[in-house]
Design a protein around this nucleic acid. Structure first.
Lengths: 208, 208
DNA sequence: GTCTATAAATAGATAGAC
DNA sequence: GTCTATCTATTTATAGAC
């Protein structure tokens, strides 16, 4: 029974944070909607930041899965497509983190360090995938270009849903689709002709 | 004398917002540091959001200057370099807006609409510059590629300083330099060979 | 584990004197 | 224009009963 209330708090907190933005959700709001007392909430968590840290741990675990690279073979364009999908879905499900990223990071040294390391792992992963594409002769790029491209992909993926939200996009699926398309368009000019055509076909098929 | 206190409030608010993040600066903090009373501050501004709206107006005017396109001739790579510099400087000087962008936009319909229109103007401006480069045969890109590229440049420029901050970069000038390099690296694969070499030279010269 | 009651701190904002 | 004093509301957090 201990786990049950604790888990309900985490689940609802995540939903409210995503819906209204973390700064606009108080511990009392959470308790109210769960129809438990504030005291009860504070029995399960030290404070609001404790809740956020637990949610961050879930996020980090999931993102680490999403950035995993296929083992034992070179990557192809479809791998990247699938990987981007998992990454954007994860970002969407924990979008409150991204909405107020700098505030959340400034409040918790723990989250700041974990996020910073995760960003590093993600950049390394992107770099390795790109190198795989070069090795598979799917794309052509210098070492400098691969590094700059990996960084740009990270920035784009990290902030695309924010940008898309500012522009007024409400539909999750469409926001994710367009996010993937934008990353792919960044890759396109480095692809060899055959793969560039292939990508173009994938994009067409994917557009709604 | 009326303008003096009002302007001092705006000036210090901007400095404190940028330094500590807008949510962490209260009207009382501002009054304290100016050594005026809270009541005096509220004589000059209706509330905190009023201060933010006035600062946003300054920001919008400056950004509209920064995204202006050279008239009467086709753009070249140096134009873009200079333009990016002015844009990043402007973002830096009003970085509090970007740090808590979605919260600030969600609180003020006025700022939300102005920012949304500014984003549109900036995208149009970027698109026109890219078309100019295509027309000048400096770069080669399809209409679709130009549109996707313009969007990606906007996302990158909008969030680069945030990203750079998350990674721990503290030096303004270096953050701006690297932001320009990242945009240029996105452009590079579309450039014709001669201009690509030219860009590479510019980048080398620019790196510290 | 959960509740009630409430403390303690902070933030935004206003009234009225000078 | 500016200040002092203060009010109201909100938020986080805890003590102690059940």
């Amino acid at each position: 029974m201990a786990r049950k209330t604790r888990d309900r708090i985490l689940e609802l907190s995540l939903a409210l944070f995503n819906e209204r933005g973390e700064p606009n959700v108080t511990t009392n709001h959470i308790a109210d909607e769960l129809e438990i007392s504030p005291g009860n909430l504070y029995y399960h968590f030290r404070n609001k930041d404790d809740i956020i840290e637990q949610l961050f741990a879930q996020y980090e675990e999931r993102m680490d899965q999403a950035i995993l690279i296929p083992e034992g073979r070179l990557p192809n364009l479809e791998d990247i497509w699938l990987q981007l999908h998992m990454i954007y879905e994860c970002i969407w499900d924990f979008r409150f983190l991204y909405r107020d990223l700098l505030d959340i990071l400034s409040r918790s040294r723990k989250i700041r360090m974990h996020f910073s390391r995760l960003l590093k792992r993600a950049t390394d992963s992107a770099t390795e995938v790109l190198r795989g594409l070069v090795a598979a002769e799917v794309m052509r790029a210098s070492a400098d270009e691969v590094q700059a491209l990996a960084t740009n992909i990270l920035v784009l993926a990290t902030f695309w849903l924010n940008y898309s939200g500012v522009r007024g996009e409400k539909d999750e699926q469409e926001a994710i689709r367009s996010g993937i398309r934008q990353v792919m368009m960044m890759l396109a000019p480095f692809l060899r002709d055959a793969e560039r055509v292939h990508l173009h076909t994938l994009c067409q098929a994917y557009a709604r």
